[in-house]
Computed example of a mutant assay.
Amino acid sequence: MRFPKRAIDFVSLSRILPPAELGALRRRHSGASSPEITPLTAPATEAMSAILGQSYNSVEVHTNGGMPLAHCETASSYTGFDMGSGEASAIAILSALERLPVGGLLLIEEIEHGFHPEAQKHLIRELTRLISERKKQIVCTTHSEYILDALPREGRLLLEREPDGHRVSAGPTTRQAMSSMIGTPQPELTVYVEDAFAEKLVRQALPGEHRLRVRIVPIGSGADVVRQLRNHLRAGLDGPAICVLDGDVTQNQLEAWSNAQDLDSTDSCLRLPGESPPETWVLDALLTDDQYHEELARSARLEAGPLAATLQRLRSTSAHHDIPRDFALRYGIDEELAPYLITACVADHPDLQPIRDHVASYLNGA
């Protein structure tokens, strides 16, 4: 592949030393020789004011012997020897951008360096405006969630190191990128469910890449779940949220609870498959599909025939919440492990696909 020739400049903000620490710079600019003076244009000066939240009358870069020193005029006059790192970084970026011709590319390492969170958001907004007007391009690296939030999804790439190279993911959400950088998942979507068994069923049904990005929280009764969802959305809590109710909740009940809380049930409220509690639905799936039945037999190291008889007896119980516990006691399985074991075997059931699709739509649009 051949790329067109274009002007390219590079700014590494994290490697810029404060002028006060450079004795050679002070000696060069304290001499009698006249420096070359390059003022920022009016649009760049206005951008500087918007980024840092103060009015700049003029911003100039004085270059003497190849060594640049910034000069600013606000309510007073001062040079790079007396300015903060945010000002120095803004001037370095804006002056480099101004030097580039139309179609030029500016590479910036650690673009957030020296900027406080609010200034980071203003920085991206102003740079986006300038490069759009002047037909230029910026490619930058960042570890800042504020920079990521300010960038459009189509302008983001997540670069992750792997044993045999690197993996590039296009359009990551801010939390997806921060999860990778922090090393622990940062949930992008909260899913409220009724109880711990429903939580395990929903978690197992999601693909691994989505499980890392979702927080699933058991709440209690169906009405309480819908009420908690309303509280989450109205309070503006951490990210978007939906709820998944048990299959024995009727559509009329769901709509009544949603209407009482002023929620759109079609967008934010789902039901698990079937018209029975999730424990019973799982047993039905295990009994009616040999694939799931055999998978449970293999996973639990049990004989398929006797297992089917046990599942049939469990299916007839009216205390559906006791099904995982009774299964564990029958086969000497840890009570904590049993719900994971039986839900994992039906995790790819097609009736769970609407939940997978709904979660994916939130994550892809976040």
Rank of each mutant, 00 (worst) to 15 (best):
A344T: 14
L283N: 03
H166T: 11
T79R: 09
D248H: 01
D351N: 13
M48C: 15
A241W: 06
H71G: 06
T317W: 13
L245K: 04
Q251W: 12
L302T: 05
W257S: 09
S258M: 12
V11I: 01
V168I: 15
E36P: 06
G239R: 05
P339G: 04
E209C: 06
A44S: 14
A70D: 06
A347S: 11
H113K: 14
V346P: 03
L307H: 04
H71Y: 15
Q54G: 09
L69Y: 01
P117K: 08
I8L: 08
E335L: 12
I147Q: 02
L245F: 08
Q204M: 14
T142H: 08
A7D: 15
A297T: 05
Q137F: 08
L130A: 00
C243D: 01
H232E: 01
D195Y: 08
E194W: 01
C72Y: 14
A88Y: 06
I37Y: 02
E335K: 09
A198M: 05
K121W: 12
N259F: 14
G104K: 01
R125Q: 12
A42G: 03
Q261K: 13
K121Q: 12
L270E: 07
E98S: 02
T184Q: 14
A338S: 09
L341Y: 09
D334Q: 08
D290T: 06
T45L: 03
E255A: 15
L307M: 10
A300W: 04
F81Q: 06
V193R: 03
Q353H: 05
H71N: 13
I323G: 06
V359F: 03
L17Y: 09
H116C: 08
I333N: 03
L13A: 00
Q353V: 09
Y192R: 04
D284S: 12
V282Q: 02
H29E: 06
R26Q: 07
I216E: 03
I8Y: 00
P354E: 04
T74Y: 08
L283A: 04
D290S: 10
A344I: 10
L296G: 07
R230H: 07
H320M: 08
